[in-house]
Each structure stands twice: as C-alpha cells, then as structure tokens.
C-alpha cells in the first residue's frame, strides 16, 4: 500500500517541477505570443548556477534555512538578468516579424546556452547532495521518502498560489491579462507594452530558474537537461492548453501521474505514452483542455 503513496508523491513532485516550467512558458506565451525554445535552458541555467554557488562557496557558508533560500535565489537572479538582457536585444526586434523567426532566434539562444554550460561548467554533471540529505527522510509505512521532495512539492503549490494571486488579485495582473487579450487596446489605454513584455519575460524565466535551482540538489545539473525539460513542458502545454494557467496546473498533474505510471510499469515506452495522450487530446480538442 505504502508504495502507492510513494508513487503518488513522486507524481506530485514531478508535476510540481513541470508546473513551474510550464507556468513560465505560458506567461510568456500568453502575453507575448512567443514560445521561448531556450526556456528549458533557462531552467538548466538556474540549476547550474545554484550548484556552482554551492560547490564554490561551500554549503557550510549558508547556515540553517539559508541553505534552501540563498543559492536558488542567486540562480534565479542570474536567470532573471539573462532574461532581462535577452528580451530587449533579441526578442524585441522580432515582434513585428513572422513567428518562424521568433522561434529561430530562441533556438539560436538555446544552442549558445548549451555550449556556454559546457564552456563554463565543464562536461561533467554538477552534483550537490548535502541540502537534499540534510533534511532526512520520512517513514511511510515501512518505506522511507526524502523530506526534500516535500519541499519541492510545496514550492510548486506556493508558486501556483502566488501566480494566481498576481494574475487575478493585483492591478498588475489585470494589466497583464488585458494585454494578453488585446495588445493594441491595452496600449491605447496607456499600458506600456514594451516594459510589460520585458517584465513578464523576466518573471517567466525566473520561475523556470527557480525550478532548476531546487531540482539541482535532488538530481544533478547536466548537459541536455534543458531540452529534456522543454519537451516535457511542451506536452503539458499541449494537453493543458496554450497560455492557460489552469491548463498548466491540471496538465502538469496529468503528465506527472502518467510519467510515474509509465516509469513504474512501462519504462521503455514511457515517453511514447505521454505523446500518445497529447496526440489524442490534440485530435479531440486541438486547443487543449483549457485553451481559449
């Protein structure tokens, strides 16, 4: 019995990371109508920077709970800075151009980032296990489950709540949603669309960086982790509906559960199952479960 609880927790853990990734992609898509192919690599950047900070400064430098706050925040800030540079220089000239060019630009960034990781952090995975092991394990029946995973699951829910609050309960959220619905009308009402684009791109990227910063002590920072994450986030996006936050949340839970079932029972065709489901959803409801 307790094995099923562990399965469920794993599914939630996975869903949490996927939600963080997809939420960022969705905010960017919703406001700017751009799919950032480098999004997965921004997640990887968060992971790399966090691991690098922990390895060079040493985990001893961060007493108590700071260990779980400061290094990921540094990672998030670096990702935010990268996004802050990327949006005005590379993406802004693209808004008036055809969408293929927007994709190609972000694909260029993806290629550059992939090699920059190799150049700066080297070909070997960066691994820091201390923050993960320090939290210990909980007993579930006769099995044990790492406490750190609960932290990551909680993070997903906290960010989900924070985003809901930001989008639906603040003035900024109203402006964001209005711009997403009708860019020109929002501009006519006095919204500074340019800076709004920059802000939403940075927010989206930072959420991905946050996910990377927290996942890195559980797994490792490794080359190619970005594209793997990107592809899974796409599945969530396709199932949930593009640009829909509710879609990202529900889609992440569905994909998290499917992935867990897949890895437990059909490890060879686990990815194939995910895509099969995505294809079925697309065929029946092309706009996704919650897409407009």
């Amino acid at each position: 019995m307790s094995i099923y609880i562990i399965f469920a927790l794993n599914a939630l853990l996975f869903a949490s990371v996927l939600f963080l990734l997809t939420a960022g992609l969705n905010i960017i898509y919703g406001v700017m109508r751009i799919i950032n192919l480098a999004h997965g690599n921004l997640y990887a950047l968060g992971a790399y920077v966090t691991a690098w900070v922990l390895l060079t400064v040493g985990y001893q430098a961060f007493p108590g709970p700071l260990l779980y706050i400061v290094p990921p925040i540094i990672g998030v800030l670096v990702v935010g800075l990268g996004a802050l540079i990327m949006e005005p220089t590379l993406l802004r000239p693209m808004y008036k151009r055809i969408e293929e060019f927007q994709l190609l630009i972000t694909f260029g960034v993806l290629l550059i980032l992939e090699d920059l990781f190799l150049l700066i952090f080297g070909p070997y995975p960066l691994s820091v296990r201390e923050p993960y092991t320090f939290l210990g394990v909980s007993k579930i029946g006769d099995l044990s489950y790492p406490n750190y995973n609960f932290l990551v699951i909680a993070l997903g829910f906290i960010v989900a709540f924070a985003l809901w609050f930001l989008l639906y309960k603040t003035k900024f959220g109203i402006i964001l949603r209005a711009t997403s619905l009708d860019r020109e009308m929002a501009a006519a009402m006095g919204v500074n669309v340019k800076s709004l684009f920059t802000v939403s791109f940075v927010i989206g990227a930072m959420i991905a960086g946050l996910a990377g910063g927290f996942i890195v002590t559980k797994d490792t920072a490794v080359l190619g982790m970005g594209i793997e994450a990107l592809v899974l986030a796409f599945v969530v996006m396709v199932i949930g509906g593009l640009g829909s936050m509710k879609g990202a949340f529900v889609g992440a839970l569905i994909v998290g559960a499917l992935r867990q079932i897949g890895t437990a029972y059909f490890p060879e065709i686990e990815l194939a199952i995910l895509w099969l489901i995505a294809a079925v959803v697309l065929t029946i409801k092309p706009q996704g479960l919650f897409g407009r």
């Binding site: 000239p93 060019f101 630009i105 694909f107 260029g108 993806l110 290629l111 550059i112 090699d115 150049l119």
Partner: peptide, 13 residues
C-alpha cells in the same frame, strides 16, 4: 553550437 547559434541569430537579425 556556440558558433552555430550566434550565426543563426545574426542571420535572422
């Protein structure tokens, strides 16, 4: 890939 990505961006821009 660094070269490839940079050339791609220059091409598009």
């Amino acid at each position: 890939r660094l070269i490839l990505g940079s050339v791609l961006i220059v091409l598009i821009l």
